[in-house]
């Protein structure tokens, strides 16, 4: 579970995140929706403890991101928007590296890898070097790597960027599976359809502020729009006009 309370962060004169609050519950897929530069990545980076908030607080599974960052990182799985795999290592070595850095060793680690390889259908490629992977294979290995320590909470930064249709479908199925197992999933996107197709809860941010949040139905009601696409544009533009 993720709780963000009045979080702000500036870079010099630019207020990238301005007093943001939202909650992402377990067993739900929460979408962070906004234009490029709206503050999505900064928010996710504060949650993954790579950046610090200037004010406010962020909690992951009850751990404070600023004060107890190690505990936060232990309970988080992070999928960055570039896969960030090491090209000269095999898929298995990439996954094993992260497992080891999570403190896993020996048989438990190897069986955790094997389990993910099976579930993601990676058997054919996991022992090849990452250099020759297709987009879908890269994504799967990066996901396996992010999930190796069975995190309760998973953060994905623009995971569908640059992916082909098959890879996107595969990812959606996987996220639904993770939701079914009771995990908290937060992912960012600037594509409305992406969020609409998947999310139980949507947080639309613009200019570093939350403009509207709720279930898709609540958002339609709140903005008076007939479809989510229009709701997004209206909400974002209303904020800009202010």
């Amino acid at each position: 579970m993720i709780v963000v309370e009045n979080v702000s962060r500036s870079f010099g004169p630019v207020r990238a995140v301005d007093d943001i609050s939202f909650v992402a519950n377990d067993g739900r897929i929460t979408g962070l929706l906004g234009h490029n530069g709206a503050g999505k990545s900064t928010t996710l980076r504060i949650l993954s403890t790579v950046l610090r908030a200037d004010s406010g607080r962020a909690l992951v599974d009850g751990h404070d991101c600023a004060r107890d960052s190690l505990a936060v990182r232990r309970s988080l799985g992070v999928l960055p928007h570039a896969s960030g795999l090491y090209a000269t290592l095999t898929g298995r070595e990439n996954i094993r590296y992260y497992g080891r850095l999570h403190g896993m060793r020996g048989a438990p680690l190897e069986s955790a890898i094997e389990e993910l390889v099976e579930r993601l259908g990676l058997g054919a490629v996991v022992d090849r070097r990452a250099k020759g992977y297709s987009q879908g294979e890269r994504l799967k290995v990066a996901l396996a790597r992010a999930l190796i320590h069975r995190p309760r909470t998973v953060i994905l930064d623009e995971p569908t960027n640059g992916l082909d249709v098959n890879a996107v479908r595969m990812l959606r199925e996987l996220l639904r599976e993770l939701r079914a197992s009771g995990r908290c999933i937060l992912f960012s996107s600037h594509v409305m359809q992406e969020v609409a197709a998947l999310c139980d809860h949507i947080v639309i941010i613009s200019g570093g502020r939350v403009v509207v949040s709720g279930t898709p139905g609540e958002i339609l009601e709140h903005t008076g729009a007939t479809d989510l696409e229009e709701a997004f544009v209206r909400a974002a533009d209303a904020e800009r006009a202010e």
């Binding site: 993954s48 790579v50 992070v78």
Partner: peptide, 10 residues
């Protein structure tokens, strides 16, 4: 792009 995920490990 592999630094950021690395830094989000415990």
């Amino acid at each position: 792009g592999s630094l950021e995920p690395l830094l989000s490990l415990p």
